[in-house]
């Protein structure tokens, strides 16, 4: 359908964008690819007065090695993450997860930063970033700060990002050859995950098992203690509060979390 009318600005720098956010406060909404925002605006579930379009800021679009980490600009599109040869070598989980987001058209528009900022507990990349122990770099007129992924998501569609802040970078540890896997369970390829599990280097991220992306900490602890994959995976749903919808009950999601975690850990162990 058709969004409510709004004003539009396309600043030519991050600083310009931050200035607009500072000036307009909560009336302004940042748009990168627009693939989380425009759908809700079209259904008139959101009606910002000003759209600040950061989709073309080249300074937010890069993937480079920086010490023990790979630094990814927040404006990097899913398609660029998916096809990055650098990431395929340094953080192979991330391209594999990006490939499962939406469909090719969506991946040509949606961005990593946008996905993390939107904070949908059913989306793929937040849980992957969480399992990777990544750091999210935020900038505002007050300066820059880094928030560990483990502290970034605070509730359904809410994050540690202040309204005047922009995600500018995601810093991901180089996991290299450490075992990894992504098990995404959907009814249709193009659906959001009913449940998904990201595994890398013994860490486990869960999609759609609560109000935020989660780590399966009981599983991780069990693995650290040397428990078998089967035993550790059986704990994957511990401490979760999975949602109910037409695709799944909480019991069903708990089962999926355990099964998918076991499978992901087995795949990761074989890599």
């Amino acid at each position: 359908m058709i969004p409510v009318g709004f004003d539009y600005a396309r600043p030519d720098s991050v600083d310009g964008a931050l200035a607009l956010l500072a000036e307009h406060g909560e009336d302004a909404t940042v748009m990168a690819g627009g693939h989380s925002l425009l759908p809700v605006m079209k259904l008139r579930l959101a009606a910002p007065e000003l759209i600040v379009d950061i989709g073309r800021l080249r300074e937010l679009n890069y993937i480079r090695v920086d010490g023990d980490e790979v630094a990814i600009g927040a404006g990097t599109r899913h398609h660029d993450v998916e096809t990055s040869e650098l990431l395929a070598t340094e953080v192979p989980l991330l391209p594999a997860v990006a490939r499962t987001v939406g469909d090719p058209q969506v991946r040509h528009r949606g961005t990593l930063g946008g996905s993390l900022a939107h904070g949908d507990p059913a989306s793929d990349l937040p849980a992957a970033v969480l399992a990777l122990d990544a750091t999210i770099v935020l900038r505002s007129p007050r300066g820059e700060r880094s928030v560990p992924a483990t502290e970034f998501w605070t509730g359904v569609f809410t994050t540690a990002k202040e309204p005047d802040e922009l995600i500018v970078e995601i810093r991901v540890p180089r996991t290299g050859t450490a075992g990894w896997a992504y098990e995404k369970f959907t009814r249709r390829a193009n659906d959001w995950a009913i449940v998904a599990v990201a595994v890398v280097d013994g860490r486990v991220g869960l999609v759609n098992m609560g109000s935020t992306p989660l780590r399966a900490s009981a599983t991780e602890a069990a693995l650290a203690e040397g428990k078998s994959i089967a035993d550790a995976a059986a704990l994957a749903d511990e401490g979760t509060e999975p949602p109910t919808d037409t695709a799944g009950t909480p019991d069903y999601r708990r089962n999926l979390a355990r099964v998918l975690t076991r499978r992901a850990l087995e795949t990761a162990a074989g890599r």
Partner: peptide, 8 residues
């Protein structure tokens, strides 16, 4: 015969 229904 959705996954949920089959699993149940």
């Amino acid at each position: 015969t959705t996954p949920l229904r089959v699993w149940e």
